Simulated assay, not measured.
Amino acid sequence: MRIGELAERAGTTTRTLRYYESRGLLPARRNAQGHRTYDEGDLRLLRQIRTLQDFGFGLEETRPFVECLRAGHAEGDLCPASLLVYRRKLAELDTLIGELTAVRAQVGAQLARAERERAALAAEASVPGGPEPGCELGGRR
């Protein structure tokens, strides 16, 4: 198949395919007329790359999976190098989850503090001579 058909079937652009070719992820085969030609195996490579990128893998992180497919394996993650990339990505995700959990705790603490302060202001406002509500939440002017 030609580059346009491959791009369409893979849900990408010809520009992206040329970029992958320049990075050595997609083979650069040409027919007698000089047109790029691709086969179903190339479509499998592209689908593997796209799936991994959807999961947050960088383009270079997809290389071991592509090489595993090119080596004739049914799946791109059956090779030791691919498993190593999975392990690294899981460690990276665990770190990010930890960081996000810490940020979530800080935001939760700020919310709790703000709600306590708002409740105290609302209580003051209900006392004669208390502060006037200055916003829709009942803050001071």
Rank of each mutant, 00 (worst) to 15 (best):
R2F: 03
R2A: 04
E5P: 10
E5S: 11
E5D: 12
A7F: 07
R9E: 04
T12Q: 09
T13E: 10
T16R: 06
T16V: 14
L17S: 05
R18H: 06
Y19V: 11
Y20W: 00
R23I: 01
L25M: 03
P27V: 12
A28T: 12
A32G: 03
Q33G: 02
Q33E: 02
G34C: 01
H35A: 01
H35L: 02
R44Q: 12
L45H: 01
L45W: 00
L46H: 02
R47H: 09
Q48H: 09
I49C: 03
R50W: 13
T51P: 03
T51N: 04
L52A: 14
Q53N: 03
Q53C: 08
D54E: 08
G56C: 06
F57A: 02
G58R: 08
L59Y: 04
E61G: 06
E61Q: 15
T62H: 10
T62D: 03
F65D: 00
V66K: 11
E67R: 15
C68P: 06
R70L: 05
R70E: 07
R70A: 09
R70Y: 08
A71P: 05
A71G: 15
A71T: 13
G72L: 13
A74L: 14
E75L: 08
D77C: 07
D77P: 02
D77E: 13
P80W: 06
L84F: 08
V85M: 08
Y86A: 15
R87S: 15
L90Y: 14
L93C: 10
D94Q: 12
L96N: 13
I97T: 10
G98I: 12
G98T: 10
E99Q: 14
T101W: 03
A102P: 01
V103Y: 14
V103D: 01
A105I: 00
A105L: 04
A105M: 05
V107W: 06
V107I: 10
Q110M: 15
A112M: 11
R113C: 04
R116S: 04
E117I: 00
A120F: 04
A120M: 04
L121W: 07
A123Y: 09
A123T: 14
E124G: 01
S126N: 11
G129T: 10
G130Y: 09
E132C: 06
E132N: 08
G134M: 10
E136C: 00
E136N: 06
L137F: 04
L137A: 09
G138K: 05
G139P: 00
G139N: 07
R140L: 11
R141Q: 07
